[in-house]
């Protein structure tokens, strides 16, 4: 019996109508010299639209790799990743770049803002890959900065902003193109408690009020509690999944 089937009912696709993200029998390994490092083994899952899910697990469990594969910045060795009806594992690099620009918003642990560009210019970056005019881009950028509550810092450079403010700019950059999914890799990992809570509130707002589909990786139990659904990975295998009781929020 292989490991994927050994996972039993947990790894079966969720039986929901038209899931937005479908992951089928996903395998990924890396080569480090002569050594082959298996990171994911036969992962299956499906995520409906407007869902807020979190991948948790110990270091090396493969959660970030799974996030990268769903975001289309890495390619699986085997298996399918179907997002909004498109099997992104079959796209070549150029098409995958265009797909990411249109469908994925990224939030990183260390914000990954371009230091030489202002907050406004950072948020505008993904829009440069669209056909929007400068005037339309401006409208979108200001709206995204307003939603994330950082409009008053629009013309500050990242070095002039606090960690929490930088992450707000990064979130504005992630939502400015109205992407199909938002992927967040440890978005509160570099923030103090208060800033982290504010960022998590903002992500909840994006999911509940604006209907954004969010896929997040975290080590932070407080962050994991905010998601509607939690997937637990260990040694590259999806071990468990459960829904959070969000009545407290």
């Amino acid at each position: 019996m292989d490991e994927a089937s050994a996972q039993g009912p947990i790894n079966r696709e969720e039986e929901k109508d038209d899931p937005l993200i479908i992951v089928k029998d996903l395998h990924k390994s890396y080569r480090r010299g002569a050594q082959k490092l298996t990171v994911l083994t036969g992962v299956n899952l499906s995520i409906p639209e407007a869902q807020y899910v979190v991948f948790i697990g110990p270091s090396g469990s493969g959660k970030t790799t799974l996030l990268n594969l769903i975001a289309g910045i890495d390619k699986p060795d085997k298996g399918k990743i179907i997002i909004a009806g498109v099997d992104i594992s079959t796209l070549d690099e150029s098409r995958l770049s265009k797909w990411r620009a249109r469908h994925v918003g990224f939030i990183f642990q260390f914000y990954n803002l371009i230091p030489v560009l202002t907050a406004y210019e950072n948020v505008e970056l993904p829009l440069l890959l669209t056909h929007l005019s400068k005037k339309e881009r401006k409208k979108h950028v200001l709206a995204a900065l307003k939603v994330t509550g950082i409009l008053d810092r629009a013309f500050h450079f990242p070095a002039q902003l606090s960690g929490g403010q930088q992450q707000r700019v990064a979130i504005a950059r992630a939502i400015v193109t109205d992407p199909t999914i938002i992927v967040a890799d440890e978005p509160t990992g570099d923030l103090d408690k208060d800033s982290a809570a504010q960022i998590l509130d903002l992500l909840n707002y994006l999911n509940r009020e604006l209907g954004k589909t969010i896929v997040m990786v975290t080590h932070d139990p407080r962050a994991a509690k905010r998601a509607r659904k939690v997937y637990v990975l260990d040694k590259g295998i999806l071990r468990d999944q459960y829904e959070n009781d969000l009545s407290w929020t």
């Binding site: 975001a71 910045i73 770049s97 990224f106 990183f108 990954n112 371009i114 970056l125 993904p126 950059r173």
Partner: peptide, 14 residues
């Protein structure tokens, strides 16, 4: 390097 990775992730081509 991280900036380059970020730009590529955002969808800017090689």
């Amino acid at each position: 390097v991280v900036e380059i990775g970020t730009l590529r992730a955002l969808g800017f081509g090689k």
